[in-house]
């Protein structure tokens, strides 16, 4: 099971790096979503996996009697998911606002904070166009 998760994390990271290398911001964001999911799975696998052993104390006992699932990583992941969700929602809105204000999703064409010395920003175009 650990191997499967490790491979899965590897695939997710590879896909996210591929997406994040794109000039299109929306692709970058999708890459970021995949990467944060890979992070969550990493925590899950690092907390050791058990199969179908809920961390419950049997009635009348003071502690669990056999190996039980580690609940802490799940708490950590839950926190990370919520935080990640909030940040991604913000970022999506920001990128949408950027699309409305700047008129592009291509990071190469975003030269408003740092205008190119020679070329005006509007002349920078990308053959792909913005893939919205």
């Amino acid at each position: 099971m650990e191997t499967v998760l490790a491979v899965l994390v590897g695939i997710l990271v590879a896909a996210s790096v591929y997406l994040m290398l794109a000039r299109n911001l929306l692709r970058f964001l999708f890459g970021l979503v995949l990467l944060s999911n890979a992070a969550n799975l990493t925590i899950f696998a690092a907390g050791r996996l058990t199969e179908a052993t809920p961390p419950l104390v049997p009635k009348g006992m003071l502690g669990p009697t056999e190996t039980v699932a580690n609940a802490l990583p799940q708490a950590l992941i839950l926190t990370a998911i919520v935080i990640g969700f909030g940040l991604l929602a913000f970022t999506l809105v920001l990128v949408y606002r950027g699309y409305r204000t700047l008129g592009t999703l291509e990071s190469d064409a975003m030269r408003f904070a740092e205008p190119a010395a020679d070329a005006p920003p509007s002349t920078i175009t990308d053959p792909d166009g913005s893939a919205l």
Partner: peptide
């Protein structure tokens, strides 16, 4: 600002 913010945020 929006331009700078996008780069900073991502």
């Amino acid at each position: 600002q929006i331009d700078g913010a996008i780069k900073y945020v991502v």
